[in-house]
């Protein structure tokens, strides 16, 4: 089991020690995965490195979109 911090909240993934970014996006049902920016332990990941980057127990992940906000 992996314990992660996702967007500031605790999250757990059962049955795996590590997952790559596409698997993580699927596992966590992240919306519009083609548009999301992924930050792993404070570093923005290049999209071409999504397949080869592994997320492990204790990591902190942020998903960021450029669409939200702006109302008043």
């Amino acid at each position: 089991m992996m314990n992660l911090t996702v967007n500031g909240k605790k999250a757990a993934i059962d049955g795996k020690d590590a997952v790559n970014i596409p698997a993580l996006l699927t596992e966590l049902k992240v919306e519009q995965p083609d548009y999301v920016t992924v930050e792993l332990n404070g570093d923005i990941l290049e999209r071409e490195n999504f397949e080869t980057t592994l997320v492990k127990d204790g990591d902190s992940v942020e998903f960021l979109y450029f669409m939200g906000g702006g109302g008043r």
């Binding site: 967007n7 519009q32 998903f63 960021l64 979109y65 450029f66 669409m67 939200g68 906000g69 702006g70």
Partner: peptide, 17 residues
């Protein structure tokens, strides 16, 4: 707050989406 910070998708105001 999460939508404004870009952590979550969601509509807020039609001027921006």
């Amino acid at each position: 707050e999460d939508i404004f910070r870009g952590r979550k998708l969601g509509q807020v105001y039609t001027r921006v989406g």
